[in-house]
Design a protein around this nucleic acid. Structure first.
Lengths: 254, 254
DNA sequence: CGGACGATTCGGTTCTCACCGAAGTGTTAT
DNA sequence: ATAACACTTCGGTGAGAACCGAATCGTCCG
């Protein structure tokens, strides 16, 4: 038995790492994936404009990304909506981005400079909060004993109580496939912010209670007035992460 | 203050996801990285032969991988030794491989078929145990209450006691930067095996006590006779993951 | 010192792929 | 119906990169 046979059992399966990486190895496709890290659904045309390529080019890229399993699509009439395939995809992309080298990019306009500042301050990362606000939340929760670093990073009993007091029942962050608490390396600060099911539940809660609002077609988050009060009273977050960074001003006229 | 100035503050830094992915987007470079997932140190020539390319080609690939931060190198005389840059690199590669599509590869020889069987059975995954053996360890530990899925996957008190009874003190898996317990999606079985600091400590312990032995210049692990006894008495692992899978035999002569 | 050896540099070939524009398909709006 | 719209298909172009072989550099050994 189990005798070698050139016809039978002459093939096997191997994960094709190069094929997956090739999907992300293009500037335009990488930009598309990073845009979709806001967790939203974009149309093909929006992504084409965002990436600065012709619609026909965007079509080709989306075909590759969808058939490669990185993106999920939905057709409605003449529109093509795409989003990331799932939380697992988003997490892997985040990890990869955390490992990637930095590249100098030119800032071309005042608007771009302000956009970048806002992104550094607070943004979505698929389904949780990133940026200075996200980092501050994770660190403050750890300091206050709501999260513990003892065995990895876990929610403490005090942390579960705190979530319940906010009105987030345990069912709100029950693990389907994802770990309750995960950390995600922040691009901008190179520090950890809160991810996983708890991070997602906290993000949903903050949105529902309008602690934060999300700008349309962008990853930017803004802390509302009531959000400032809530983050201060519930977590004691310092003022600097709750107030928007001052905008860059246009040069003085002559 | 903070006034826009075309000269000043006209550049910013962005993680270059595409550049990192481009490193892995080549078959040869991907093969090199996967080979190095055994956690070992290889010479340039060994990798060239393994990947089936000329030494000059291997040199170019290694230059890219090293300067991209994925590999660390060490020169000794006329030799060039390379290895993965660190545990974080290995984990990201594993995650990526778990997300990658499968590809059919031809099995060309009897030796290759047997090599593949052995890999499926038990192998190293950077610094911990993967394959059927690794999956069985993770699942049995969970069944026995040594690991709990409650908040992510964590070591229970019983688990810490069990490790201590084996002679693995808590210092042996103290977190430097890595989480104690992590899971890693197994390529071959698509199930989780144990990773993180605990996984690494367990692997080291098994090697030191010769429960397992590592084949030279390969990721293959073999369970020793004393290892079979230990895994059975300590964890109650079933026999099928402790005995090597029967080798494929050459075809009968005429 | 001279030869063997591991690794590197360089030139040249080949091939893949990202891109665009123009034309085409199907959907929604007037 | 006709027009505007979102997207797609296709052909052609240009840039980039993977590869090898030959020559070279530096190290180790006899």
């Amino acid at each position: 038995m189990n005798r070698w046979d050139a016809d039978h059992e002459s093939t096997a399966e191997t994960p094709d790492l190069a094929a997956l990486a090739a999907l992300l190895a293009d500037r335009t496709r990488a930009a598309i994936c990073i845009a979709l890290l806001d967790g939203g659904t974009w149309t093909a045309g929006e992504l084409a404009e965002y990436a600065g390529v012709a619609p026909s080019t965007a079509t080709e890229h989306l075909n590759l990304l969808v058939s490669g399993g990185l993106l999920a699509e939905e057709r409605q009439g003449r529109r093509r909506y795409v989003r990331l395939a799932g939380p697992h995809t988003a997490e892997t992309l985040e990890n990869l981005a955390g490992l990637a080298p930095y590249r100098q990019v030119r800032i071309r306009s005042l608007a771009e400079a302000n956009h970048r500042r806002a992104l550094h301050h607070a943004r979505t990362c698929y389904d949780h909060i990133a940026g200075a606000l996200g980092v501050a939340i994770a660190e403050t929760m750890t300091e206050r004993g709501l999260l513990a670093r003892e065995y990895g990073l876990v929610l403490t009993t005090a942390g579960a109580d705190w979530l319940a007091a906010l009105g987030i029942p345990e069912a709100g962050y029950s693990p389907t496939h994802r770990a309750h608490v995960r950390t995600c390396l922040d691009w901008t600060s190179r520090r950890q912010h809160l991810s996983g099911a708890v991070g997602a539940a906290l993000y949903r809660h903050a949105l529902e209670h309008r602690w934060i609002v999300k700008a349309p077609a962008s990853r930017i988050l803004a802390v509302t007035e009531s959000g400032r009060a809530a983050f201060r009273s519930q977590l004691g977050l310092p003022t600097e992460v709750l107030t928007p960074t001052p905008a860059v001003l246009p040069p003085r006229g002559p």
